[in-house]
Write a protein that binds this DNA or RNA. Sequence first.
DNA 1: AAGACGTGGTA
DNA 2: TTACCAAGTCT
Length: 363
Amino acid sequence: MILHCTDQININEFRSNLVTWFYQNQRELPWRENKDPYRVWVSEIMLQQTRVDTVIPYYLNFMRQFPELENLAEASEDEILKAWEGLGYYSRVRNLQTAVREVVSHYNGVVPDTREEISNLKGVGPYTAGAILSIAYDKAEPAVDGNVMRVLSRVLVIDEDIAKVKTRKTFERELYELIDPEDPSAFNQGLMELGALVCTPTSPGCLLCPVQSHCGAYHQGLQNQLPVKTKKKKAIPKNMAAFLIKNNKNEYLIEKRPETGLLAGLWQFPNFEVSSVSAKEELEEALMNGYGIETYTHGEPIQYIEHVFSHIIWNISVFEAKAKQAESASGTSLKWVSQGELEQYAFPVSHQKIITHTIRGEA
DNA sequence: AAGACGTGGTA
DNA sequence: TTACCAAGTCT
């Protein structure tokens, strides 16, 4: 093993090669304009399991809408979900607001700077804690994400399964030795940037790599065998029925999803799992029991949507229906809204397709 | 420990 | 088309 641990000369060279490379090759990103802890925090939450290119427009909009931590703390749930609409993993923004409120009430609006305190904030796990501490506060704390595990598994030739939660701790232990105490921010970001731009999952650019000489996998020709990662299971398909229901005022019925679980707190058209979409009686009964809505009988589906989540596939048949009564027993989770009002509410991507295709008649 | 939790891009 | 991914966290 080329680098492993005790050789201080090699460690110093590794650090300086990585940090120098980072300053010369880092991308200009909106969250790199300054080190404001709140701005760094928001970016780290958005970046979880999400590509840089996807995040950029959301980040710009989010910071325009909630420029200071206090603005986010005071926003409504519908506002924050709308700002997150389409980004996925919606509990991230709900947790972020909970955490930001905690910072306002408990830390006088100042993001705490110890791992202990910051880790107790909702949605801040080991990676995000390390990222904020190092990037915003220049603390020598590891920030182990998928990039870092891929890069270090190659450099240090570590073949533990990076899909396993405990493997992260192995890399954190190594990092406490390896991290550059002079510039932990550039070191951590350099590791991630290297993973994103050079030490990629497939066909890594070893010939361009600033730490090639320190890389055990490169010297042994193992860069394509590492990291080791077990595969995940495939998504399970479900038959879903969705209903586009109008009343006599030309309004649509929408419902708010439960506060926990899949797509928590988002709005949707009445939507539920069915054994079969051709069992009309089952559909009518579900509408009556679930929504208190009697409808004029509906015909064949007017739209089919396949939507793939990480662990589920929704095969949605969309039906059109007219409510027999103008008002329904409207709990807080049911609402009649005009076409124009629809855009105020955050919908899952699968139901955005109903709005664009069936309501607006776009391609 | 393993599964829940989204979405859009790429080979 | 299927599979895997992309700056993880919570239960």
